[in-house]
Design a protein around this nucleic acid. Structure first.
Lengths: 229, 229
DNA sequence: ATTATAATTTAGGCAAATCTAAAAATTTGT
DNA sequence: ACAAATTTTTAGATTTGCCTAAATTATAAT
Protein backbone atom coordinates (compact mmCIF):
# COMPACT_ATOMS: atom_id res chain seq x y z
CA UNK A 1 0.00 0.00 0.00
CA UNK A 2 1.01 3.57 -0.61
CA UNK A 3 1.22 5.92 2.28
CA UNK A 4 1.34 9.08 0.26
CA UNK A 5 4.64 9.98 1.82
CA UNK A 6 5.14 12.82 -0.58
CA UNK A 7 1.58 14.10 -0.63
CA UNK A 8 2.42 17.23 1.26
CA UNK A 9 5.83 17.66 -0.27
CA UNK A 10 4.74 18.26 -3.83
CA UNK A 11 5.28 21.62 -5.39
CA UNK A 12 2.61 23.46 -7.30
CA UNK A 13 4.41 22.82 -10.52
CA UNK A 14 4.73 19.10 -9.88
CA UNK A 15 1.03 18.92 -9.14
CA UNK A 16 0.20 20.69 -12.37
CA UNK A 17 2.29 18.26 -14.38
CA UNK A 18 0.64 15.26 -12.70
CA UNK A 19 -2.78 16.70 -13.44
CA UNK A 20 -1.91 17.33 -17.08
CA UNK A 21 -0.50 13.85 -17.55
CA UNK A 22 -3.66 12.44 -16.02
CA UNK A 23 -5.89 14.36 -18.41
CA UNK A 24 -3.85 13.43 -21.46
CA UNK A 25 -3.66 9.82 -20.33
CA UNK A 26 -7.45 9.53 -20.23
CA UNK A 27 -7.89 10.09 -23.97
CA UNK A 28 -5.65 7.47 -25.51
CA UNK A 29 -4.73 4.56 -23.30
CA UNK A 30 -1.08 4.73 -24.29
CA UNK A 31 1.89 6.71 -22.99
CA UNK A 32 1.68 10.49 -22.94
CA UNK A 33 4.04 12.39 -25.26
CA UNK A 34 6.41 15.06 -24.01
CA UNK A 35 5.25 17.48 -26.68
CA UNK A 36 1.61 17.03 -25.77
CA UNK A 37 2.36 17.96 -22.17
CA UNK A 38 4.44 20.94 -23.25
CA UNK A 39 1.68 22.23 -25.51
CA UNK A 40 -1.08 21.89 -22.93
CA UNK A 41 1.02 23.53 -20.23
CA UNK A 42 2.33 26.23 -22.54
CA UNK A 43 5.91 25.38 -21.77
CA UNK A 44 8.85 23.91 -23.69
CA UNK A 45 9.47 20.19 -24.24
CA UNK A 46 12.85 20.46 -22.57
CA UNK A 47 11.23 21.77 -19.41
CA UNK A 48 8.84 18.85 -19.50
CA UNK A 49 11.71 16.39 -19.73
CA UNK A 50 13.32 17.99 -16.69
CA UNK A 51 10.17 17.70 -14.65
CA UNK A 52 9.38 14.17 -15.78
CA UNK A 53 12.73 13.07 -14.42
CA UNK A 54 11.94 14.59 -11.07
CA UNK A 55 8.48 13.00 -10.99
CA UNK A 56 10.04 9.71 -11.95
CA UNK A 57 12.45 9.96 -9.00
CA UNK A 58 9.45 10.39 -6.74
CA UNK A 59 7.71 7.38 -8.22
CA UNK A 60 4.82 9.37 -9.55
CA UNK A 61 5.38 8.47 -13.20
CA UNK A 62 6.82 5.64 -15.26
CA UNK A 63 9.42 6.95 -17.61
CA UNK A 64 11.79 5.56 -20.18
CA UNK A 65 13.71 7.98 -22.39
CA UNK A 66 11.98 8.72 -25.70
CA UNK A 67 9.09 6.44 -24.72
CA UNK A 68 6.65 8.91 -23.24
CA UNK A 69 5.32 8.87 -19.72
CA UNK A 70 2.46 7.40 -17.70
CA UNK A 71 1.27 7.77 -14.13
CA UNK A 72 2.11 5.19 -11.50
CA UNK A 73 -0.60 4.06 -9.08
CA UNK A 74 0.68 6.73 -6.69
CA UNK A 75 0.67 9.34 -9.44
CA UNK A 76 -2.87 8.42 -10.37
CA UNK A 77 -4.07 8.72 -6.82
CA UNK A 78 -2.34 12.06 -6.50
CA UNK A 79 -3.98 13.31 -9.69
CA UNK A 80 -7.41 12.25 -8.47
CA UNK A 81 -6.81 14.10 -5.22
CA UNK A 82 -6.04 17.30 -7.08
CA UNK A 83 -9.00 16.90 -9.41
CA UNK A 84 -11.25 16.25 -6.42
CA UNK A 85 -10.12 19.52 -4.89
CA UNK A 86 -10.45 21.45 -8.14
CA UNK A 87 -14.00 20.29 -8.77
CA UNK A 88 -15.18 20.69 -5.19
CA UNK A 89 -13.91 24.26 -5.18
CA UNK A 90 -15.75 24.87 -8.45
CA UNK A 91 -18.98 23.71 -6.88
CA UNK A 92 -18.31 25.92 -3.87
CA UNK A 93 -17.72 28.96 -6.07
CA UNK A 94 -20.95 28.44 -7.99
CA UNK A 95 -23.17 27.30 -5.13
CA UNK A 96 -21.97 29.49 -2.31
CA UNK A 97 -20.32 32.46 -3.94
CA UNK A 98 -22.54 32.90 -7.00
CA UNK A 99 -19.78 32.56 -9.56
CA UNK A 100 -20.92 31.66 -13.05
CA UNK A 101 -19.62 28.44 -14.57
CA UNK A 102 -17.26 30.27 -16.88
CA UNK A 103 -15.54 32.08 -14.00
CA UNK A 104 -14.66 29.19 -11.75
CA UNK A 105 -11.80 27.50 -13.54
CA UNK A 106 -9.12 30.13 -13.01
CA UNK A 107 -9.72 30.46 -9.30
CA UNK A 108 -10.08 26.69 -8.80
CA UNK A 109 -6.67 26.30 -10.44
CA UNK A 110 -5.26 28.17 -7.48
CA UNK A 111 -7.44 26.65 -4.78
CA UNK A 112 -6.71 23.08 -5.86
CA UNK A 113 -3.18 23.39 -4.47
CA UNK A 114 -4.21 24.23 -0.91
CA UNK A 115 -3.00 21.44 1.33
CA UNK A 116 -5.37 20.34 4.08
CA UNK A 117 -7.34 17.12 4.23
CA UNK A 118 -9.62 18.53 6.84
CA UNK A 119 -10.36 21.53 4.66
CA UNK A 120 -11.39 19.55 1.64
CA UNK A 121 -13.42 17.00 3.56
CA UNK A 122 -15.27 19.75 5.39
CA UNK A 123 -15.91 21.52 2.12
CA UNK A 124 -17.29 18.29 0.73
CA UNK A 125 -19.68 18.08 3.69
CA UNK A 126 -20.71 21.75 3.38
CA UNK A 127 -21.63 21.13 -0.24
CA UNK A 128 -23.51 17.93 0.67
CA UNK A 129 -21.10 15.59 -1.13
CA UNK A 130 -21.74 16.67 -4.71
CA UNK A 131 -21.13 14.06 -7.40
CA UNK A 132 -20.56 16.45 -10.30
CA UNK A 133 -18.94 19.81 -10.84
CA UNK A 134 -20.61 22.77 -12.60
CA UNK A 135 -19.50 21.45 -16.00
CA UNK A 136 -20.92 18.01 -15.37
CA UNK A 137 -17.61 16.32 -14.63
CA UNK A 138 -17.58 13.73 -11.87
CA UNK A 139 -15.95 14.50 -8.51
CA UNK A 140 -13.73 11.74 -7.10
CA UNK A 141 -14.53 10.78 -3.51
CA UNK A 142 -11.89 10.95 -0.80
CA UNK A 143 -10.45 7.60 -1.86
CA UNK A 144 -10.15 8.70 -5.47
CA UNK A 145 -13.11 6.63 -6.61
CA UNK A 146 -15.57 7.98 -9.16
CA UNK A 147 -17.71 6.64 -11.93
CA UNK A 148 -17.97 8.29 -15.31
CA UNK A 149 -21.63 9.15 -15.84
CA UNK A 150 -23.42 7.42 -18.66
CA UNK A 151 -23.59 10.14 -21.27
CA UNK A 152 -23.16 10.75 -24.98
CA UNK A 153 -22.11 13.64 -27.14
CA UNK A 154 -25.11 15.35 -28.70
CA UNK A 155 -23.36 15.07 -32.06
CA UNK A 156 -23.29 11.28 -31.78
CA UNK A 157 -26.93 10.51 -31.13
CA UNK A 158 -29.50 9.71 -33.86
CA UNK A 159 -32.37 11.91 -34.91
CA UNK A 160 -35.31 12.00 -32.54
CA UNK A 161 -33.16 11.15 -29.54
CA UNK A 162 -33.88 13.25 -26.51
CA UNK A 163 -32.15 13.63 -23.19
CA UNK A 164 -31.00 15.93 -20.45
CA UNK A 165 -27.94 18.08 -20.98
CA UNK A 166 -25.53 16.83 -18.33
CA UNK A 167 -22.15 18.20 -19.26
CA UNK A 168 -19.78 20.02 -21.58
CA UNK A 169 -16.68 18.60 -23.18
CA UNK A 170 -15.02 21.96 -23.76
CA UNK A 171 -15.25 23.98 -20.59
CA UNK A 172 -13.46 27.09 -21.84
CA UNK A 173 -14.97 30.39 -20.79
CA UNK A 174 -15.61 31.21 -24.45
CA UNK A 175 -17.77 28.16 -25.02
CA UNK A 176 -19.58 28.49 -21.72
CA UNK A 177 -20.42 32.12 -22.36
CA UNK A 178 -21.71 31.16 -25.77
CA UNK A 179 -24.01 28.62 -24.14
CA UNK A 180 -25.24 31.21 -21.63
CA UNK A 181 -25.97 33.65 -24.42
CA UNK A 182 -28.02 31.04 -26.21
CA UNK A 183 -29.86 29.84 -23.15
CA UNK A 184 -28.27 26.41 -23.06
CA UNK A 185 -27.57 25.08 -19.58
CA UNK A 186 -27.12 21.81 -17.73
CA UNK A 187 -30.49 20.30 -16.90
CA UNK A 188 -32.13 21.41 -20.14
CA UNK A 189 -34.14 18.83 -22.07
CA UNK A 190 -32.70 18.55 -25.57
CA UNK A 191 -34.10 16.62 -28.53
CA UNK A 192 -32.45 16.28 -31.92
CA UNK A 193 -35.04 17.05 -34.62
CA UNK A 194 -32.96 17.13 -37.75
CA UNK A 195 -29.37 16.92 -38.87
CA UNK A 196 -28.29 19.04 -41.81
CA UNK A 197 -26.35 16.89 -44.23
CA UNK A 198 -24.43 19.79 -45.70
CA UNK A 199 -22.56 21.02 -42.61
CA UNK A 200 -23.69 18.66 -39.91
CA UNK A 201 -25.57 21.37 -38.02
CA UNK A 202 -28.51 20.27 -35.87
CA UNK A 203 -32.05 21.47 -35.42
CA UNK A 204 -32.84 20.82 -31.80
CA UNK A 205 -35.64 21.47 -29.41
CA UNK A 206 -34.37 22.66 -26.07
CA UNK A 207 -36.83 23.00 -23.20
CA UNK A 208 -39.59 23.37 -25.78
CA UNK A 209 -37.80 26.05 -27.79
CA UNK A 210 -36.49 25.26 -31.29
CA UNK A 211 -33.02 26.32 -32.37
CA UNK A 212 -30.18 25.44 -34.67
CA UNK A 213 -26.66 24.67 -33.48
CA UNK A 214 -23.48 23.87 -35.38
CA UNK A 215 -21.82 20.49 -35.33
CA UNK A 216 -18.97 21.92 -33.27
CA UNK A 217 -21.38 22.97 -30.55
CA UNK A 218 -23.14 19.61 -30.57
CA UNK A 219 -19.85 17.79 -30.29
CA UNK A 220 -19.12 19.61 -27.05
CA UNK A 221 -22.41 18.94 -25.30
CA UNK A 222 -23.13 15.77 -23.36
CA UNK A 223 -26.63 14.45 -22.91
CA UNK A 224 -27.97 11.59 -20.90
CA UNK A 225 -30.53 9.85 -23.10
CA UNK A 226 -34.04 9.65 -21.67
CA UNK A 227 -35.00 6.19 -20.44
CA UNK A 228 -37.24 4.19 -22.73
CA UNK A 229 -36.54 6.00 -25.98
CA UNK B 1 -2.86 57.56 -6.32
CA UNK B 2 -1.65 54.03 -6.46
CA UNK B 3 -3.16 51.67 -8.95
CA UNK B 4 -1.81 48.52 -7.42
CA UNK B 5 0.02 47.77 -10.61
CA UNK B 6 1.90 44.93 -8.97
CA UNK B 7 -0.94 43.51 -6.91
CA UNK B 8 -1.20 40.40 -8.99
CA UNK B 9 2.48 40.12 -9.70
CA UNK B 10 3.65 39.50 -6.19
CA UNK B 11 5.11 36.16 -5.26
CA UNK B 12 4.02 34.25 -2.20
CA UNK B 13 7.32 34.99 -0.55
CA UNK B 14 7.09 38.71 -1.21
CA UNK B 15 3.62 38.76 0.28
CA UNK B 16 4.85 36.97 3.40
CA UNK B 17 7.62 39.49 3.89
CA UNK B 18 5.22 42.41 3.49
CA UNK B 19 2.87 40.86 6.02
CA UNK B 20 5.68 40.30 8.51
CA UNK B 21 6.99 43.84 8.13
CA UNK B 22 3.47 45.12 8.69
CA UNK B 23 3.05 43.16 11.91
CA UNK B 24 6.45 44.20 13.25
CA UNK B 25 5.84 47.78 12.26
CA UNK B 26 2.67 47.96 14.36
CA UNK B 27 4.45 47.43 17.65
CA UNK B 28 7.07 50.13 17.65
CA UNK B 29 6.52 53.07 15.34
CA UNK B 30 10.11 52.99 14.11
CA UNK B 31 11.87 51.08 11.33
CA UNK B 32 11.76 47.29 11.39
CA UNK B 33 15.10 45.50 11.91
CA UNK B 34 16.41 42.90 9.49
CA UNK B 35 17.06 40.46 12.32
CA UNK B 36 13.54 40.79 13.65
CA UNK B 37 12.12 39.87 10.26
CA UNK B 38 14.50 36.95 9.93
CA UNK B 39 13.59 35.61 13.34
CA UNK B 40 9.84 35.83 12.81
CA UNK B 41 10.07 34.26 9.37
CA UNK B 42 12.53 31.61 10.48
CA UNK B 43 15.00 32.57 7.81
CA UNK B 44 18.47 34.12 7.75
CA UNK B 45 19.20 37.86 7.87
CA UNK B 46 21.03 37.65 4.57
CA UNK B 47 17.91 36.30 2.88
CA UNK B 48 15.95 39.16 4.35
CA UNK B 49 18.36 41.72 2.97
CA UNK B 50 18.01 40.18 -0.48
CA UNK B 51 14.25 40.32 -0.38
CA UNK B 52 14.13 43.82 1.06
CA UNK B 53 16.07 45.04 -1.94
CA UNK B 54 13.56 43.45 -4.27
CA UNK B 55 10.63 44.92 -2.35
CA UNK B 56 12.36 48.27 -2.41
CA UNK B 57 12.68 48.08 -6.21
CA UNK B 58 8.94 47.53 -6.37
CA UNK B 59 8.24 50.50 -4.13
CA UNK B 60 6.69 48.43 -1.40
CA UNK B 61 9.19 49.38 1.30
CA UNK B 62 11.46 52.26 2.22
CA UNK B 63 15.00 51.05 2.63
CA UNK B 64 18.36 52.51 3.43
CA UNK B 65 21.28 50.17 4.10
CA UNK B 66 21.77 49.41 7.78
CA UNK B 67 18.77 51.59 8.63
CA UNK B 68 15.98 49.04 8.80
CA UNK B 69 12.88 49.03 6.67
CA UNK B 70 9.32 50.38 6.66
CA UNK B 71 6.32 49.94 4.40
CA UNK B 72 5.43 52.54 1.81
CA UNK B 73 1.78 53.54 1.35
CA UNK B 74 1.57 50.90 -1.36
CA UNK B 75 3.20 48.30 0.87
CA UNK B 76 0.79 49.12 3.66
CA UNK B 77 -2.20 48.76 1.40
CA UNK B 78 -0.86 45.46 0.12
CA UNK B 79 -0.37 44.18 3.67
CA UNK B 80 -3.91 45.12 4.61
CA UNK B 81 -5.20 43.26 1.56
CA UNK B 82 -3.42 40.10 2.62
CA UNK B 83 -4.55 40.43 6.22
CA UNK B 84 -8.11 40.96 5.05
CA UNK B 85 -7.94 37.73 3.11
CA UNK B 86 -6.32 35.82 5.96
CA UNK B 87 -8.92 36.87 8.49
CA UNK B 88 -11.91 36.39 6.21
CA UNK B 89 -10.75 32.86 5.45
CA UNK B 90 -10.39 32.23 9.17
CA UNK B 91 -13.98 33.27 9.72
CA UNK B 92 -15.07 31.03 6.86
CA UNK B 93 -13.24 28.04 8.29
CA UNK B 94 -14.82 28.48 11.71
CA UNK B 95 -18.31 29.52 10.63
CA UNK B 96 -18.84 27.34 7.61
CA UNK B 97 -16.46 24.43 7.98
CA UNK B 98 -16.54 23.95 11.76
CA UNK B 99 -12.83 24.42 12.29
CA UNK B 100 -11.84 25.32 15.83
CA UNK B 101 -10.01 28.59 16.38
CA UNK B 102 -6.70 26.85 16.92
CA UNK B 103 -6.84 25.08 13.55
CA UNK B 104 -7.49 28.00 11.23
CA UNK B 105 -4.17 29.77 11.10
CA UNK B 106 -2.18 27.22 9.13
CA UNK B 107 -4.78 26.84 6.40
CA UNK B 108 -5.47 30.58 6.24
CA UNK B 109 -1.75 31.11 5.66
CA UNK B 110 -2.20 29.25 2.41
CA UNK B 111 -5.57 30.68 1.43
CA UNK B 112 -4.47 34.29 1.95
CA UNK B 113 -2.35 34.08 -1.21
CA UNK B 114 -5.19 33.17 -3.57
CA UNK B 115 -5.55 35.96 -6.08
CA UNK B 116 -9.09 36.97 -6.98
CA UNK B 117 -10.91 40.10 -5.95
CA UNK B 118 -14.23 38.59 -6.83
CA UNK B 119 -13.50 35.59 -4.64
CA UNK B 120 -12.70 37.58 -1.55
CA UNK B 121 -15.54 40.04 -1.97
CA UNK B 122 -18.01 37.20 -2.44
CA UNK B 123 -16.63 35.46 0.60
CA UNK B 124 -17.08 38.66 2.56
CA UNK B 125 -20.71 38.74 1.47
CA UNK B 126 -21.29 35.06 2.28
CA UNK B 127 -20.01 35.69 5.79
CA UNK B 128 -22.17 38.81 6.14
CA UNK B 129 -19.26 41.25 6.27
CA UNK B 130 -17.71 40.19 9.57
CA UNK B 131 -15.78 42.85 11.48
CA UNK B 132 -13.57 40.51 13.51
CA UNK B 133 -11.83 37.20 13.01
CA UNK B 134 -12.12 34.20 15.37
CA UNK B 135 -9.34 35.59 17.57
CA UNK B 136 -10.96 38.98 17.89
CA UNK B 137 -8.70 40.77 15.43
CA UNK B 138 -10.32 43.33 13.15
CA UNK B 139 -10.87 42.57 9.46
CA UNK B 140 -9.92 45.40 7.06
CA UNK B 141 -12.63 46.31 4.57
CA UNK B 142 -12.00 46.19 0.83
CA UNK B 143 -10.33 49.59 0.92
CA UNK B 144 -8.01 48.55 3.72
CA UNK B 145 -9.85 50.54 6.35
CA UNK B 146 -10.39 49.11 9.82
CA UNK B 147 -10.64 50.40 13.34
CA UNK B 148 -8.91 48.77 16.27
CA UNK B 149 -11.59 47.79 18.74
CA UNK B 150 -11.55 49.52 22.09
CA UNK B 151 -10.11 46.83 24.32
CA UNK B 152 -7.64 46.26 27.14
CA UNK B 153 -5.45 43.45 28.31
CA UNK B 154 -7.00 41.67 31.27
CA UNK B 155 -3.67 42.04 33.05
CA UNK B 156 -3.90 45.82 32.83
CA UNK B 157 -7.30 46.49 34.35
CA UNK B 158 -7.90 47.23 38.03
CA UNK B 159 -9.65 44.96 40.51
CA UNK B 160 -13.41 44.76 40.20
CA UNK B 161 -13.32 45.62 36.53
CA UNK B 162 -15.57 43.45 34.41
CA UNK B 163 -15.98 43.07 30.70
CA UNK B 164 -16.50 40.79 27.76
CA UNK B 165 -13.60 38.74 26.48
CA UNK B 166 -13.15 40.05 22.94
CA UNK B 167 -9.77 38.80 21.78
CA UNK B 168 -6.45 37.09 22.34
CA UNK B 169 -3.03 38.62 21.94
CA UNK B 170 -1.22 35.33 21.44
CA UNK B 171 -3.14 33.25 18.93
CA UNK B 172 -0.87 30.21 18.92
CA UNK B 173 -2.59 26.84 18.89
CA UNK B 174 -1.03 26.07 22.26
CA UNK B 175 -2.60 29.05 23.98
CA UNK B 176 -5.95 28.63 22.25
CA UNK B 177 -6.16 24.97 23.24
CA UNK B 178 -5.34 25.94 26.80
CA UNK B 179 -8.24 28.38 26.77
CA UNK B 180 -10.57 25.73 25.37
CA UNK B 181 -9.53 23.28 28.06
CA UNK B 182 -10.29 25.86 30.71
CA UNK B 183 -13.58 26.96 29.26
CA UNK B 184 -12.42 30.44 28.29
CA UNK B 185 -13.85 31.75 25.05
CA UNK B 186 -14.63 35.01 23.29
CA UNK B 187 -17.92 36.40 24.50
CA UNK B 188 -17.43 35.28 28.10
CA UNK B 189 -18.08 37.82 30.86
CA UNK B 190 -14.94 38.19 32.93
CA UNK B 191 -14.50 40.09 36.18
CA UNK B 192 -11.24 40.54 38.05
CA UNK B 193 -11.84 39.71 41.73
CA UNK B 194 -8.36 39.74 43.16
CA UNK B 195 -4.77 40.08 42.05
CA UNK B 196 -2.14 38.05 43.85
CA UNK B 197 0.78 40.30 44.79
CA UNK B 198 3.28 37.47 44.90
CA UNK B 199 3.14 36.27 41.28
CA UNK B 200 0.58 38.55 39.70
CA UNK B 201 -1.94 35.74 39.19
CA UNK B 202 -5.60 36.73 39.07
CA UNK B 203 -8.74 35.41 40.68
CA UNK B 204 -11.45 35.97 38.14
CA UNK B 205 -15.10 35.21 37.74
CA UNK B 206 -15.89 34.03 34.25
CA UNK B 207 -19.53 33.58 33.25
CA UNK B 208 -20.33 33.15 36.95
CA UNK B 209 -17.63 30.55 37.60
CA UNK B 210 -14.61 31.40 39.76
CA UNK B 211 -11.10 30.48 38.64
CA UNK B 212 -7.49 31.49 38.98
CA UNK B 213 -5.28 32.35 36.02
CA UNK B 214 -1.60 33.28 35.81
CA UNK B 215 -0.37 36.71 34.87
CA UNK B 216 0.87 35.36 31.55
CA UNK B 217 -2.63 34.19 30.64
CA UNK B 218 -4.17 37.49 31.67
CA UNK B 219 -1.67 39.42 29.60
CA UNK B 220 -2.83 37.59 26.50
CA UNK B 221 -6.56 38.13 26.90
CA UNK B 222 -8.34 41.25 25.73
CA UNK B 223 -11.55 42.45 27.34
CA UNK B 224 -13.88 45.23 26.46
CA UNK B 225 -14.83 46.89 29.70
CA UNK B 226 -18.55 46.99 30.50
CA UNK B 227 -20.15 50.38 30.05
CA UNK B 228 -20.79 52.31 33.20
CA UNK B 229 -18.29 50.60 35.48
C1' DA C 1 16.60 0.53 -46.37
C1' DT C 2 18.01 4.78 -46.19
C1' DT C 3 16.96 9.44 -45.76
C1' DA C 4 14.17 13.23 -44.13
C1' DT C 5 11.30 14.87 -40.55
C1' DA C 6 9.58 15.07 -36.11
C1' DA C 7 10.04 14.24 -31.25
C1' DT C 8 12.86 14.10 -27.35
C1' DT C 9 16.77 14.81 -24.61
C1' DT C 10 21.14 17.04 -23.20
C1' DA C 11 23.99 20.96 -22.21
C1' DG C 12 24.44 25.25 -20.49
C1' DG C 13 22.22 29.43 -18.62
C1' DC C 14 18.95 32.41 -15.96
C1' DA C 15 15.88 34.25 -12.07
C1' DA C 16 13.82 33.53 -7.51
C1' DA C 17 14.64 32.45 -2.99
C1' DT C 18 17.27 30.44 0.00
C1' DC C 19 21.86 29.27 2.49
C1' DT C 20 26.94 29.84 4.68
C1' DA C 21 30.91 32.42 5.50
C1' DA C 22 33.16 36.62 5.53
C1' DA C 23 33.25 41.66 5.40
C1' DA C 24 31.38 46.16 6.67
C1' DA C 25 28.67 49.34 9.37
C1' DT C 26 26.48 50.48 13.57
C1' DT C 27 25.82 50.35 18.42
C1' DT C 28 27.41 49.60 23.09
C1' DG C 29 30.42 49.58 27.07
C1' DT C 30 33.72 51.50 29.72
C1' DA D 1 36.42 57.98 22.24
C1' DC D 2 37.68 53.66 20.99
C1' DA D 3 37.48 48.74 21.25
C1' DA D 4 34.17 45.02 21.44
C1' DA D 5 29.94 43.19 20.32
C1' DT D 6 26.10 43.17 17.48
C1' DT D 7 23.69 43.88 13.30
C1' DT D 8 23.56 44.07 8.55
C1' DT D 9 25.27 43.39 4.06
C1' DT D 10 28.05 41.20 0.39
C1' DA D 11 29.93 37.30 -2.07
C1' DG D 12 29.41 32.99 -3.71
C1' DA D 13 26.78 28.53 -3.79
C1' DT D 14 22.37 25.69 -4.15
C1' DT D 15 17.65 24.21 -5.74
C1' DT D 16 13.54 24.68 -8.51
C1' DG D 17 11.67 25.53 -12.68
C1' DC D 18 12.13 27.48 -16.66
C1' DC D 19 14.64 28.82 -21.19
C1' DT D 20 17.55 28.31 -25.97
C1' DA D 21 20.36 25.84 -28.92
C1' DA D 22 22.38 21.70 -30.21
C1' DA D 23 22.53 16.74 -30.26
C1' DT D 24 20.18 12.38 -30.26
C1' DT D 25 16.56 9.00 -31.12
C1' DA D 26 12.37 7.56 -33.24
C1' DT D 27 9.10 7.74 -37.07
C1' DA D 28 7.61 8.43 -41.78
C1' DA D 29 8.45 8.64 -46.73
C1' DT D 30 10.10 7.22 -50.81
Amino acid sequence: MYFCVNKYLMTRSEENYIKTIFHLGRKGTQEVATNAIAELMETKPSSVTDMIKRLSEKDLVNYKRYQGVSLTALGNKTALGIIRKHRLWEVFLVEKLDFSWDEVHEVAEQLEHIKSDKLIDSLDRLLAYPKFDPHGDPIPDKNGGFKERDRELLSEVPINTGGVCVGVKDSSATFLKFLDKNGIALGNQIKVMEIEEFDGSLNIEIDGRKMQISHVIASNLYIKANDGI
